Amino acid sequence: MSVSAARPARSSRGLRTLVAALALALAGSLSGCSLVDRLGGPDPVEAENPSAAAAQAAYDSQFTRDGTFQSHIKIDGMDFVYTLWPTKSTPRTNEWYPRGNKFFSFTFQVYDMNRKLRDPFRTKRKAYLGNIKVTSRTITTGGGQTQRPYKLNAEASRITFDPEAVTHPEHGMLITSPKGSFEIRNQKIGPVSEDTRGIELTFVAEVHYERAPGSGRFVAKKIKQTVPIAIFESDTPTKVGKIPINAN
């Protein structure tokens, strides 16, 4: 009798443990994910038809909730930082609808955490950004075909906001703060299907950073970041305000 009574208790404890683990896994998936690869590794393969559950998860978006997104990816004492925000043409992220264009800007830079913020720049390790690639995919409730309303694939120094970025002859533009930063403005996400409830942007930056300050020896990495953005159901197109082309 005592043996049969103990078995349900262990089963109940096991079930509670499984539910807790699933909850933690779901929570980790909602805020965006980052990944670091060696330069030359394959880009992530995406499912063509994300599930309805993924559409619900898309609503838990830092970008949508806070009106900005920032991630810190730390490697070897270097802090790589992606920052995204909606531009003034479509500033209200809770009014990003399937129809109409939506605009955002983003930056990418790195801090040498082995040095203090006010230390001389010559004592900090330099990091350079070569190619920057951004892909997108929609998350729908109807299970329709995946759309890709935004893409970017370019040499960073050719498209960054600074027309005179400091560059390395082989590795691209300087992105070590405070002397360098990649910035691009007013990027357009085009219209999507009416059943779209989320858009995922995946960023891949090809970087080289110094092993030691002034050493001239570099480590190559791909810095990846996925950013979920919520899209709200509406028959009304996203309202786009007129702003100067260089407005932030």
Rank of each mutant, 00 (worst) to 15 (best):
M1R: 15
S2A: 15
V3D: 14
A5R: 12
A5V: 09
P8D: 08
A9H: 10
A9I: 12
R10C: 10
R13H: 13
A23Q: 08
L24V: 09
L26W: 07
A27D: 05
G28H: 05
C33A: 07
S34W: 15
L35A: 05
L39E: 05
L39N: 04
G40Q: 04
E46N: 14
A47C: 01
E48K: 01
P50F: 03
Q56H: 06
T64Q: 09
G67D: 09
T68L: 11
T68M: 11
Q70R: 06
K74A: 11
D76G: 13
D79K: 01
F80E: 05
F80L: 13
Y82Q: 12
P86Y: 08
K88W: 12
T90A: 12
T90E: 09
T90R: 07
R92T: 08
R92G: 04
N94D: 08
Y97S: 00
P98E: 00
R99G: 03
K102G: 00
F106G: 12
V110K: 01
V110C: 04
R115E: 06
D119Y: 10
F121M: 12
A127W: 08
L129C: 02
V134D: 00
T135E: 07
S136M: 05
R137P: 02
I139M: 02
T141H: 00
T141V: 01
G142Y: 06
G143T: 02
G143A: 08
R148L: 09
R148T: 14
R148F: 15
P149C: 07
N153C: 11
N153Y: 15
E155K: 06
A156N: 10
R158Q: 06
I159Q: 10
E164H: 04
E170G: 08
G172P: 01
M173Q: 13
I175W: 10
S177V: 09
F182D: 07
E183N: 12
R185H: 05
R185M: 03
N186S: 15
Q187N: 13
K188N: 15
I189G: 02
G190E: 04
E200N: 14
L201Q: 15
T202G: 02
E206H: 04
E206A: 03
V207D: 14
R211P: 05
R211K: 15
A212R: 13
A212S: 11
G214T: 10
A220M: 12
K222L: 15
I223P: 07
I223S: 00
T226V: 15
P228D: 03
P228K: 06
D235I: 07
T238F: 00
G241N: 13
G241T: 07
P244F: 04
N246A: 08
N246R: 13
A247T: 07
A247V: 02
